[in-house]
Amino acid sequence: MNENSMEVLPLLEVEGLTKFFGGLRAVNDFNMTIFKGELVGLIGPNGAGKTTVFNQITGIYLPTKGTVKLNGTNLVGFEPHEITRAGIGRTFQNIRLFNGLSVLDNVRIAFHSSAGYNLLDSILSNERYSQKEREITGQAQDLLDVMKLSRFQNEIVKNLPYGEQRRVEIARAMACQPQLLLLDEPAAGMNPREIIQLMDMIHFIRDNFKLTILLIEHQMRVVMGICERITVMDFGEIIARGTPKEIQDNRLVIEAYLGKGAANVA
């Protein structure tokens, strides 16, 4: 897809992203360009700095250096909620759902920035409020449909099984109406059957919602199975990038994973 879109502006451009925690260099000179519609994987051993990259892109950490551009606009310095509103949705490595609320409410919360009515409308409980509220509920239910969660919509989310919770998180991230979706280890803790389902689902949402997806994953078979391009990190630096095939044969990557990665893939 990206080969014939050279003239198109990239969706996300990360340049020279660097993060120091005190004296510790978590991420050093991270560069990445993602074009519209791509499905890109970011892999690396534990502590390689993948999640730190996510947290910098989404504004939870302020980068020490570097720029993050979405559609050509530099996002560094914006608050996380503004970055989300600008079009980057995300999920979390250790699920962060709104535990006490129902599945539907979890998703509806994410519509807040596009609710289309303000506090005064809701206090007066006027026509605009009820109309928009119906729309939000409808859209949320559509998303739950897509993620095959409809029958859980009134369940309290903390009572759901792990795999379902991961899917709720994806549905919630999509409710932010992002252009770029960042998935942080979406398959963690899932069984093989669920993983296959999840891979289908990720493909499906990418194609049907015209999303661009960047995902962090440990499970090689997920990354190799669905990603078109892969970037590998180790000790805060990029050590390789390329297609799944190229990555599989990359010596540096195999070394970084101490053979584990290679064994998994082979």
């Binding site: 989404t58 939870i60 608050e79 996380p80 909620h81 989300t84 509103r85 949705g89 995300r90 979390f92 962060r96 759902l97 709104f98 535990n99 006490g100 609320l101 919360i109 994410a110 807040h112 920035s113 919630r172 991230a173 409710a175 932010c176």
Partner: peptide
């Protein structure tokens, strides 16, 4: 419920 998640859902 969760401040960080809320922030990442576009909530100020």
């Amino acid at each position: 419920e969760d401040e960080i998640a809320a922030r990442s859902m576009g909530i100020d």
